[in-house]
Amino acid sequence: MSALERRAAMAALLEGRKDDLLVIPGLGSTCWDLAAAGDNDRNFYLWGAMGGAAMIGLGLALAQPDKRVLVVTGDGEMLMGMGALATIGVKQPANLAVVVFDNGHYGETGMQPSHTGAGRVDLTEIAAGCGIASVVDVRDEPGLTGLAARLKELAGAGPLFARVRIATGEAPRVLPERDGVVLKNRFRAAIGLKP
């Protein structure tokens, strides 16, 4: 299986990014991937809070129904907060997409196999079982192009879940701002809220 390269995958999802797109990465590799794709005040980088990315996305999506919220996280981070998929399934926010970069490993800690890599845990089936109607499994470039197009039109039927199968290779770390108060205030200012 020729899995996708993570930095190229992130760049593809964000190509032609507009101001109505708000992005929450998981901690670790997806956070560095997001920073590498170009800093943006509408990114809220996570340096911790493992398991919380999708729920931050839900709170944001409910508060900003006219904007699109994209959570891009890793398989390990999603596994820790898997209940969030059930919670999202109940609320059905039409403007939320949760994309999991799945390499079957915990990359930040030495590439130990995760549940999706070492076993038969399938996050797309879990998302579907949680009542998320739009579930996409991305394995190749055409699939990635299709997902990027879906993200641009995010609205309507309900939340979107996508698994993007990425290669296990590590990319050089690109470290964004890490002061949480700065990140919070610049994000709010960017969408017109007072710090």
């Binding site: 398991g51 931050i56 839900l58 709170g59 508060a63 907060g81 969030a84 919670t87 609320k91």
Partner: peptide, 22 residues
């Protein structure tokens, strides 16, 4: 109203809400 599977989800929910102005 957001029924959670575990309470820690609510901490993250509240953070997201505040990022979005609620």
């Amino acid at each position: 109203d957001v029924v959670l599977t575990t309470e820690e989800e609510g901490i993250a929910l509240a953070a997201g809400a505040w990022l979005g102005g609620q």
